[in-house]
Simulated assay, not measured.
Amino acid sequence: MGVARGAVHLDLDGFVVSLTAPGVPWLPNGVALGRLPPAPVVRWDPADPPLWDPVVPPLAGGPAAFAAFAAWLLPRVAPPDVPLASAAGRLVGRGPGLTPEGDDVLAGAAAGLRALGPAAGLAAGRIDALARSLCPPDVRTRTGALSATLLLLAASRGTAPEPVHRLIAAGDRDAALADLRRLGASTGGAVATGIALAARYLETVTSGA
């Protein structure tokens, strides 16, 4: 598909694999290389164990931990004034970038729902339905192949770029947020916005629980 910001994107019949150079955050669809080759030719054995699992582990600690996370994140990342239930219809394919900002927001929201929903107290079935609703069935006709790949993975499995894993886990969240915002021209910031959108939604629907 092309080369941008330390990554080569290969379209494999609609599923995009991103080859990334050192210094680029690991991606859910990525193969991290010691250096980018002069041409996109890479030998890789899928039978080897992966370097990491791109599925973001759920936030540990229950409702108190979720409340603390939301209280930390929302003042730093303002979510858009978009209801989660209608977000896909309004955002898919919208905005600039190799992965449109609207798609990145949706991917962040889907990963955020799956990572934060259990601690917030939302039922598993509702989390799954909401996350999947953020990736409409016709996504491949409404946005590019790379963006559709990342959104499908986030909505169905809860995958996200590596800095999101550190953002959700206990640790230096300020550093993780800064690393996430450096991803792509606008991708990381939009993913963070999506996580904030999910956090605000969960805060609203579980506040009376």
Rank of each mutant, 00 (worst) to 15 (best):
residue 3 V to L: 11
residue 4 A to M: 09
residue 6 G to P: 14
residue 10 L to D: 05
residue 11 D to M: 03
residue 12 L to I: 15
residue 13 D to M: 11
residue 15 F to W: 09
residue 15 F to N: 07
residue 24 V to H: 02
residue 27 L to W: 09
residue 28 P to Y: 06
residue 28 P to M: 11
residue 29 N to R: 09
residue 32 A to R: 09
residue 32 A to Q: 15
residue 33 L to Y: 09
residue 39 A to E: 13
residue 39 A to I: 10
residue 41 V to L: 15
residue 41 V to H: 13
residue 42 V to Y: 04
residue 47 A to T: 01
residue 47 A to L: 13
residue 48 D to F: 03
residue 49 P to Q: 09
residue 50 P to Q: 06
residue 50 P to R: 06
residue 54 P to F: 01
residue 55 V to T: 00
residue 55 V to F: 01
residue 55 V to N: 00
residue 55 V to H: 02
residue 65 A to C: 11
residue 65 A to V: 03
residue 65 A to E: 08
residue 70 A to T: 13
residue 71 A to F: 01
residue 72 W to V: 06
residue 73 L to G: 00
residue 73 L to Q: 01
residue 74 L to A: 02
residue 75 P to C: 06
residue 75 P to E: 04
residue 80 P to C: 10
residue 81 D to N: 11
residue 81 D to R: 14
residue 81 D to A: 15
residue 82 V to H: 11
residue 90 R to D: 05
residue 92 V to A: 13
residue 92 V to T: 13
residue 95 G to T: 07
residue 96 P to N: 04
residue 97 G to K: 00
residue 101 E to L: 08
residue 102 G to V: 01
residue 102 G to A: 14
residue 102 G to R: 06
residue 102 G to K: 07
residue 103 D to W: 02
residue 103 D to Y: 09
residue 103 D to C: 14
residue 104 D to W: 06
residue 105 V to P: 14
residue 106 L to Y: 07
residue 108 G to V: 10
residue 108 G to A: 15
residue 109 A to Y: 12
residue 110 A to I: 10
residue 110 A to G: 07
residue 110 A to F: 05
residue 111 A to I: 06
residue 113 L to D: 01
residue 116 L to K: 12
residue 116 L to A: 12
residue 117 G to P: 02
residue 117 G to M: 02
residue 119 A to M: 13
residue 120 A to Q: 06
residue 120 A to D: 06
residue 121 G to H: 08
residue 125 G to E: 12
residue 126 R to S: 11
residue 127 I to P: 11
residue 127 I to S: 02
residue 128 D to C: 02
residue 129 A to C: 07
residue 130 L to G: 03
residue 139 V to A: 04
residue 141 T to Q: 14
residue 141 T to G: 15
residue 142 R to F: 03
residue 144 G to N: 11
residue 144 G to W: 00
residue 147 S to V: 08
residue 147 S to F: 08
residue 148 A to E: 03
residue 149 T to W: 00
residue 150 L to T: 07
residue 150 L to K: 11
residue 150 L to A: 03
residue 154 A to G: 05
residue 156 S to V: 07
residue 157 R to A: 13
residue 160 A to D: 13
residue 163 P to T: 07
residue 165 H to K: 12
residue 166 R to E: 15
residue 166 R to C: 10
residue 167 L to D: 09
residue 167 L to A: 05
residue 172 D to M: 01
residue 172 D to H: 01
residue 176 A to Q: 08
residue 176 A to S: 01
residue 176 A to L: 05
residue 180 L to Y: 07
residue 181 R to E: 14
residue 182 R to S: 15
residue 186 S to R: 14
residue 187 T to I: 08
residue 188 G to D: 07
residue 188 G to C: 13
residue 190 A to E: 10
residue 190 A to L: 12
residue 191 V to E: 07
residue 192 A to D: 05
residue 197 L to G: 04
residue 200 R to C: 01
residue 201 Y to R: 11
residue 202 L to I: 02
residue 203 E to F: 05
residue 205 V to H: 05
residue 205 V to E: 06
residue 206 T to I: 03
residue 209 A to K: 12
residue 209 A to F: 06
